[in-house]
Design a protein around this nucleic acid. Structure first.
Length: 873
RNA sequence: GCGCGGUUAGCUCAGUGGUAGAGCACCUCCUUGACACGGAGGGGGUCACAGGUUCGAACCCUGUAUCGCGCACCA
């Protein structure tokens, strides 16, 4: 009996082999290696993050690529690290501070607060890295980087200085997206548009020069009317042409504001009159610029109204102020009506509150290398997989806007700009303050996190590493950060290294729950991958996910799929266990020197075909397809058929048993190597247990084993292989036919039977012992084409006509069946009559109708079954 | 509004012009010396809908519905 346990227990195996790989330094990339390089940089997870299913998917894919490359003889660098994630991390630490000490970051001051964030990072920042290790990721952990590492930070700031010197970075007072919760500016990409149900308020502004005449003005944001500095109409709008150049009364604070003409106004929308609030709307700001309007900012950075809004509203939160302003308008009789209205409102991605368009002084970047970056993808120099993402990229690149890179946060890379204390218009841009540093103060702001991430593919590498491993080969990431990260890395790569930073970009699926919702913490619909790994093993989780993660489409997560992964690991384990029970591996002579049965030739041929499909699938980044190939070959072709077909020979012993063992070793050995990138731990364990490991140290590991040969049996001509496969398929077809007959005639699986065969001449002389054992027949009696003496259930197969000998009187059985079919038809007729009766159908409750339909279907199924059986008689 | 992608069995999904597939779930049989996390057999589909091209369409074309995503938005 084997000493391998009956059910595979992944926990200990996975831990042991991961430890082994680490202690042998298997993941370390050597820039001095003579092997060709292969590299991937990890999309750095947020240092605050914990592992999600999205990470599992993403990193399993990278691990597959890395492990496959190791097997194919590459020196592999998979470079890991984490991202400081400015807003996210700062928010987490601030929240904790408020909760535990009742303090804000300002209470602590900048230096002390940053000390706390670092403390927090040291304490919790490693969690996701540990989790990635649990998953089996083969990253070169000694090279782990953090976007706030000293040298990396220096590069970020140098980048700023350099782009500033080139005139691409500039400072300006502009309308930006402001998050009132985080109290910082955001880039356009950090704003998500949400369809929001709201109200359209129609207000009445009196024309100053024509008392008693009112303009109706529609707005969704009455709380900003205190900042109105004009009313605008379309220059060609006949309704209002006579008013252009006159004035309207802003109700409160009461002021006379000009009526201007601007082509931006849509005559067809609302009343065709727009209130212009240059401080609180991007389009209004532009109108203000065109007409030289005053800008009145009535809001504080935290989203409350300020003194300019008037004492009545000062200090009021913006949405409360909306209600108050409407009430005030109504009181004054200046509210015409309120309509329901649905429009898109920009929300802060992080804080999930509506962003406030806000005029403020920020740093902007005019992107470098835009045409080249666009061309790199359009021309295919960088390959996007699936290809359709290239269109999204192209669209964004051709409509690209300057990037607001400054953030009013403390956690991040401080902007390397100094202002002279006595004259802040004197600016110094550089890593360090000028020599008389006491006379200068550094810009308070930090840089957008993505301004550091865009350097990741090369900023993480030193000189020798870059020489060997840059540009990287593949990037695996989510399509949700195509603009945030992928596009910007391409531009940075071109600008700072003169090369595109990667060759292929694979965009993963987005994992949703069974209801199609995005996984999120607040919904509580995101299973913890660690729990899943505890239940099903890391390999089970990986393989289960690979089988459902299609080519860049959304995927609905179902735990059952992971269970299948676990079951597959168990199947593999037991197939290996079966082989181990047959004795130690046979290395005495090469496969080709054994006398191979047609079954062996066929299984090896099928293995080679699977191997070819697997290679193609991986080359196309069709991971799902590769996983399916692996699964189907092993479970069906190898276990269900080959192993079962070979049992008799193994029991018989002798040379043919040796041959079967050799074939099993060949298939299992090759198979484990192909499966290893998907299920690294169990394959390493079995490689070792089955005795395939040879040599010393690393050479013993499947991790570094070469893939199997593409042609396992070069000595056998293709026609001969096809012939064997054909004969074997005929036998298996016949086996299936016998099984069907057995099921139809209620011969239990464990009962033996006698089968008669009128053999097709193509297979004359072919040994039938496998047919006999798989059909669980006591004997196969060969008969002539005219069939057996008495009637028996039968079926036609490629191997010939097969007959199942039964201890029954066939004619009596036929009569019995005919009788039964008659009864069933009567039942069907009853049901049909009932369903055809309109008064019944109209009167009966739907459940009753349903049950009748179901009953009808059941009877019909029974009838079909009997008819099939009858046909075999 | 413009663009992209999806719609196939109860569920999750494969399937690029030639007899509709897998796994799970369901029903029947089987604890046979690898595996019940298993084996054998079975039922279940108007391939969203409507047209068109073709000898032949889940697949190609046109339109519609619906879900999702991206972009742009009219206050």
């Amino acid at each position: 009996m084997s000493d391998i346990s009956k059910a595979y227990e992944p926990g200990a195996v996975e831990e042991r082999w991961y430890g082994e790989w680490i202690s042998q330094g298997c993941f370390a990339a050597d820039p001095a290696s003579g092997k060709p390089g292969f590299s991937i940089v990890i999309p750095p997870p947020n240092v605050t993050g914990v592992l999600t299913l999205g990470h599992v998917l993403n990193n399993t894919l990278q691990d597959i690529l890395a492990r496959r490359a190791r097997q194919t003889g590459h020196e592999v660098l998979w470079l890991p690290g984490t991202d400081h994630a400015g807003i996210a991390t700062q928010t987490v630490v601030e929240r904790q501070l408020r909760k535990e000490e009742g303090k804000t970051r300002r209470d602590l001051g900048r230096d002390e607060f940053l000390r706390r964030v670092w403390e927090w990072k040291e304490k919790h920042g490693g969690i996701i890295i540990k989790q990635l290790k649990r998953l089996g990721c083969s990253c070169d952990w000694d090279r782990e980087r953090f976007t706030m590492d000293e040298d990396y930070s220096r590069q970020v700031q140098e980048t700023f200085v350099r782009l500033h010197a080139q005139g691409l970075i500039y400072r300006g007072k502009r309308m930006v997206n402001w998050c009132p919760v985080s109290q910082t500016a955001l880039s356009d990409e950090e704003v998500v548009m949400k369809s929001t149900k709201g109200k359209l308020y129609v207000m009445r502004y009196e024309v100053a020069e024509e008392p008693g005449t009112f303009l109706e003005i529609a707005t969704t944001r009455p709380e900003t009317l205190m900042g109105d500095t004009a009313v605008a109409v379309h220059p060609e709008d006949p309704r209002y042409a006579h008013l252009i150049g006159r004035h309207a009364w802003r109700p409160f604070p009461r002021a006379m504001i000009p009526i201007v003409a601007d082509r931006h106004i849509d005559m067809a929308f609302g009343t065709g009159v727009l209130k212009v609030t240059p401080a609180h709307d991007k389009a209004d700001f532009e109108i203000g610029q065109r007409h030289g309007l005053e800008v009145i900012d009535v809001m504080n950075p935290d989203g409350t109204l300020n003194d300019l809004a008037g004492p009545e509203f000062s200090g009021m939160e913006r949405f409360a102020a909306r209600e108050a302003a409407v009430a005030r308008l109504e009181e004054m009789g200046l509210l015409a009506r309120i309509e329901d209205y649905e429009n898109n409102v920009g929300y802060s991605e992080r804080a999930d509150v509506p962003v406030e368009p806000r005029l403020s002084e920020q740093w902007f970047l005019r992107y470098p290398q835009v045409p080249a970056a666009l061309d790199a993808v359009v021309s295919g120099k960088i390959r996007f997989v699936p290809e359709r993402w290239a269109k999204i990229y192209e669209h964004w690149m051709t409509n690209i806007q300057d990037w607001c890179i400054s953030r009013q946060l403390w956690w991040g890379h401080r902007i390397p700009v100094w202002y002279r204390l006595d004259d802040s218009s004197v600016v110094h841009v550089g890593l360090d303050a000028p020599a008389d540093e006491d006379n200068w103060r550094q810009d308070e702001d930090v840089l957008d996190t993505w301004f550091s991430s865009w350097l990741w593919p090369f900023g993480t590498m030193d000189g020798p590493t870059r020489a060997k491993f840059y540009p990287t080969n593949d990037l695996v990431t989510g399509p949700d950060i195509i603009f945030f990260w992928v596009a910007r890395m391409i531009m940075a790569g071109l600008e700072f290294t003169g090369e595109t930073p990667f060759r292929n970009v694979f965009f993963t699926s987005i994992i949703r729950d069974l209801k199609g919702r995005k996984m999120s913490k607040s919904l509580g619909n995101s299973p913890d991958p660690l729990d899943l790994m505890a239940k099903y093993g890391a390999d089970g989780l990986r393989f289960g996910l690979m089988r459902i993660a299609p080519h860049g489409q959304d995927v609905r997560f179902d735990e059952n799929q992971i269970k299948e992964g676990r079951n597959f690991a168990n199947k593999l384990w037991n197939a290996a266990r079966f082989r181990e029970m047959q004795g130690p591996p046979l290395v005495v002579k090469p496969l080709a020197e054994h006398a191979l049965s047609p079954y062996s030739v066929a299984v090896i041929t099928a293995f080679d075909a699977m191997h070819a499909a697997y290679r193609q699938a991986l080359a196309d980044f069709h991971f799902h397809e590769a996983a399916t190939q692996l699964y189907d070959f092993f479970w069906s072709t190898y276990c269900d058929w080959y192993v079962e077909a070979s049992k008799a020979e193994l029991t018989a012993g002798g040379a043919s048993a040796d041959s079967v063992r050799a074939v099993m070793d060949h298939v299992l050995g090759g198979y484990l190597r192909l499966l290893h990138p998907f299920m690294p731990h169990i394959t390493e364990e079995l490689w070792d247990r089955l005795g395939f490991a040879a040599g010393e140290g690393r050479a013993r590991l499947i991790l570094f084993a070469s893939p199997p040969d593409e042609d396992s049996l070069p000595g056998i001509p293709a026609e001969e292989k096809a012939q064997a496969a054909n004969a074997v398929a005929a036998v298996y077809e016949a086996v299936r036919a016998v099984r069907v007959l057995r099921a139809e005639f209620k011969v239990p699986s464990n009962a033996e039977c006698v089968v008669h065969l009128a053999r097709h001449p193509d297979f004359a002389g072919f040994d039938l012992s496998v047919f006999r054992s798989l059909a669980r027949a006591t004997e196969i009696e060969e008969i002539g084409a005219s069939g057996p003496a008495r009637k028996m259930p039968h079926a036609l197969t490629p191997l010939g006509e097969v007959y199942l000998e039964l201890d029954i009187d066939v004619e009596a059985e036929r009569q019995r069946m005919l009788g039964e079919i008659g009864k069933i038809e009567a039942e069907i007729a009853k049901v049909e009559a009932k369903l055809a009766d309109t008064s019944f159908v109209q009167g009966a409750p739907p459940q009753v109708i349903e049950s009748f339909k179901t009953r009808g279907a059941d009877w019909r199924a029974k009838r079909a079954k009997l008819e099939t059986a009858l046909a075999a008689l």
